[in-house]
Design a protein around this nucleic acid. Sequence first.
DNA 1: GTCTATAGGCGGATAGAC
DNA 2: GTCTATCCGCCTATAGAC
Lengths: 200, 200
Amino acid sequence: MTARRTGRRPGNPDTRDAILAAARTAFAERGFDAASIRAIATTAGVDPALVHHYFRTKEELFRATVAIPIDPAELLPRVLAGGRDEVGARLVRTFLGVWDSPVGTAAVALLRSAVSNQWTARLLREFLTTQILRRVLDQLDLDPAEAPLRGSLVSTQLAGLAMMRYVIRLEPVASATPDTLVATIGPTLQRYLTGPLDQS
Amino acid sequence: MTARRTGRRPGNPDTRDAILAAARTAFAERGFDAASIRAIATTAGVDPALVHHYFRTKEELFRATVAIPIDPAELLPRVLAGGRDEVGARLVRTFLGVWDSPVGTAAVALLRSAVSNQWTARLLREFLTTQILRRVLDQLDLDPAEAPLRGSLVSTQLAGLAMMRYVIRLEPVASATPDTLVATIGPTLQRYLTGPLDQS
DNA sequence: GTCTATAGGCGGATAGAC
DNA sequence: GTCTATCCGCCTATAGAC
């Protein structure tokens, strides 16, 4: 009776991590459909059959790839702490912090895949609504009648920022400094969250 | 020597149009990679080989699908006419008019494909920069040092709007009336185009 | 113009030997 | 745990008969 009788995942941890890392970049660069298990296995230096051995299906591999590294419960308090008037700026800065980090690879994978694949789109939509938007909106104590619209407006701006900066790579947004984007896009989010909804 | 000795496209126009229509919806719903010539042919009620007969390759079929119906030279004057202070609002309204129309199907196809396919991403990027942004920015007579940033900021907001409304279908943005979106997002574009770039 | 037949490739998944 | 062998499917594209 060893100490790890429960919760132990099957397989050699090193091999498993190598597959996960290769899968993360593959899904981020090509999206769910275009990424192939065979290519991922080659990059990881393992046999394709091993990928199935560890993750059973391509879908479960994708889930393991994107689900692990994003934990909004840890980040959001930092966004919501501090003055209510700077929520927009802090939201942009935190957002960029996640996407510019290694963790952002998983986010790119999710966004890329969500566009050409129905069930990943649903995954993204549910992640947005239940994990991010609801928490932010709850904390800001908004009019319940307006909150959903405010939340989805924020989503449009942040999704577009991610698309242009990390997927399409449109300049100069793709290479702009976080400070520039915080200064320009922060006020937009601020107005979507706490400003008037009709006129600027 | 008939009147149409030159410029006559090969093939039966009806069949050709049926293929084009089927291709437009297929590319819009599934993106370039996932859409198949076989499925397009089935929807159009023709033989797969005919698709190649008319359009040679899948890539040329895609080009014919998205290139024809979008002509910014016709729309942009409407956006730019009138007061400089309402450019943002008119830009949103025109944008929604295009995407909500049948023509918008081609736009969805381009956006969806651009995410999982390099050469379509380049197609979209060049379309944005040379056909849309340059014309708008030129007409507004902006500081040349700031114009590129302003243009790409506008792109982030419009791309995100398209993503959430037409691809991910996040509510309530997906079902919002044009008036609502013009009132909320118009001011954002207005500030990106003519407002201060540092603070709101 | 239209269709049949097929070449030639890559994909996910599985069974079973070692 | 790891790998070989293989099934079975879908794809684009082409040659050539009708």
